[in-house]
Design a protein around this nucleic acid. Structure first.
Length: 432
RNA sequence: UCCGCGAUAGCUCAAUGGUAGAGCAUGCGGCUGUUAACCGCAGGGUUGUAGGUUCGAGUCCUACUCGCGGAGCCA
């Protein structure tokens, strides 16, 4: 008999199938017994009635504990009472792979520390399962979007000789006879080199920040996708980010409605995410903050609260562009019409989820870039290869980085990014 | 690094300074349609650690450990 998966039971209505999985939960009403099996694609209730199956099978109910692994054979029956629409009238339990020890995660509530300590088991729960499916769909949308537009995936190295932006605290490691190597905080500089080779590129990989950030928006290890396009200016960059976000959100809405329902996500907020996204300047953002009575001085970066207040003025992600150059990275090009601001853009997600995209047009003039490196007191030697990009056919170019976990957190409507990645790394947790 | 909150049964939480409790989980029993099933019985505790105040401390005080949330920094 063909092996079947729970999410395909509808194709086998009235027929006998075999499933392999784990015991999610069980209930009994005396002579009617219910085994809820999960197999990674869903959960199905297997029903057995005393007298209709051999007693040797009926009594296995007592043997099976939560998360025991086993297989069942049964007949698929449509049933309106079943959450998935189908039930299995159980005929046989051909194999018990293992009777699980007492499982620590019960259907009742648990605290976050308890669950985090058992993250490897927590992933089996319905809610975490839904989040991982949405995460996967988002990552697929990211790749489909760029692949469908002629971008080439050119990944950046993870071990790097120096800080990319010179500001963040990095993890370091011994690198043979060459001294220290650092875990990357951004693939961007390498993406720029790749864009000069391939035109349109993106890199997609893990990123590391050693700052002791302790908030619901921070991880020490997170995933970032960074497109970079030769001959794009800031407006092109914003156009790309806008198309990109719309594509991601609409893809999730198309394919992950069951998961969003499990997460009790208000999807009307997601349905708004369509072009055009509002674009405001940093100056206009500052005006919003001051009008709202917040103490804010021109020249500062937007803090977490500031971002929330600004994003609350809109029903979809908002692009804030032309930040003061002082608070932005050395490689961002200044606005020729106002050198006090950089041609940078941050995209703030709605509902207080904060910055999900940071990008800019890059400085393409060799002399200006050299001056910036001096101003920021960066070791010019380490950036010689990067400066070469301005020596040999320099062109205007722009790109951005999107934080995958913050995007997942926003789309799923989660309280904390720690649930958006299978095994989160935070300052006080690197296990399991 | 700074500020705030917390730690009691396997889990989630109660307990005016005066005998440490409930629900769930576990074990046993019951129930022919259960949906976090339900009903009955039972076992289960060095109240985070170390001191202190008190006739008496889970409760008050001090220090420490661990965790949570926020600030800064950032995606």
């Amino acid at each position: 008999m063909a092996r079947t998966y729970i999410n395909e039971l509808g194709l086998h209505e009235g027929k006998e199938v075999q499933l392999h999985g784990w015991l999610f939960h069980k209930r009994s009403s005396g002579k009617v017994r219910f085994l809820l099996m999960r197999d990674g694609t869903g959960v199905v209730q297997c029903v057995m009635v005393k007298g209709q199956v051999p007693d040797s099978i009926f009594d296995l109910f007592d043997t099976l504990t939560q998360e025991s692994s086993f297989s069942v054979r049964g007949k698929v029956r449509k049933d309106d009472r079943a959450p998935g629409g189908f039930e299995l009238d159980l005929l046989d339990i051909p194999k018990i792979y293992q009777v699980a020890e007492e499982y620590p995660i019960t259907p009742k509530e648990h605290g976050i520390e308890f669950l985090a300590d058992r993250r490897h088991l927590w992933l089996r729960s319905t809610r975490q399962h839904a989040i991982m499916r949405v995460r996967h769909r988002i990552i697929k949308a990211i790749r489909d979007f760029f692949d469908g537009r002629g971008f080439t995936l050119v990944d950046s190295p993870i071990l790097t000789p120096a800080a990319c932006e010179g500001t963040s605290t990095l993890f370091d490691t011994d690198y043979f006879d060459l001294g220290k190597a650092y875990l990357t905080q951004s693939g961007q500089l390498y993406a720029e080199a790749s864009a000069m080779a391939m035109g349109k590129v993106y890199c997609f990989g893990p990123t590391f920040r050693a700052e002791k950030s302790k908030t619901r928006r921070h991880l020490t290890e997170f995933w970032m996708v960074e497109p970079e396009v030769a001959f794009n200016d800031l407006n092109d960059d914003m156009d790309l980010a806008e198309d990109f976000l719309e594509y991601i959100v609409q893809s999730v809405l198309k394919d992950c409605l069951p998961e969003l329902k499990v997460l009790e996500r208000d999807i009307t907020k997601l349905q708004n995410v369509k072009k055009p996204l509002p674009r405001i300047t940093y100056d206009e953002a500052v005006k919003i903050l001051i009008d709202k009575g917040l103490p804010f001085e021109w020249g500062n970066d937007l803090g977490g609260t500031d971002e929330t207040v600004v994003s609350e003025q809109f029903d979809r992600p908002v692009m804030v562009h032309r930040y003061p150059s002082e608070v932005k990275a050395f490689y961002m090009k200044r606005d020729p019409e106002n050198p006090k601001v950089a041609l940078a853009v941050d995209v703030l997600a709605p509902e207080g989820y904060g910055e999900i995209i940071g990008g800019s047009q890059r400085e393409d003039n060799l002399d200006v870039l050299l001056a910036r490196i001096k101003e920021h007191k960066l070791p010019q030697e380490a950036f010689e290869w990067y400066l070469d990009l301005r020596r040999f056919g320099s062109v205007p170019h722009a790109g951005f980085g999107l934080g995958v976990e913050r995007t997942v957190g926003w789309i799923c409507g989660l309280e904390h990014v720690r649930e958006t990645i299978p095994f989160p790394r935070m300052i006080y947790r690197n296990t399991p």
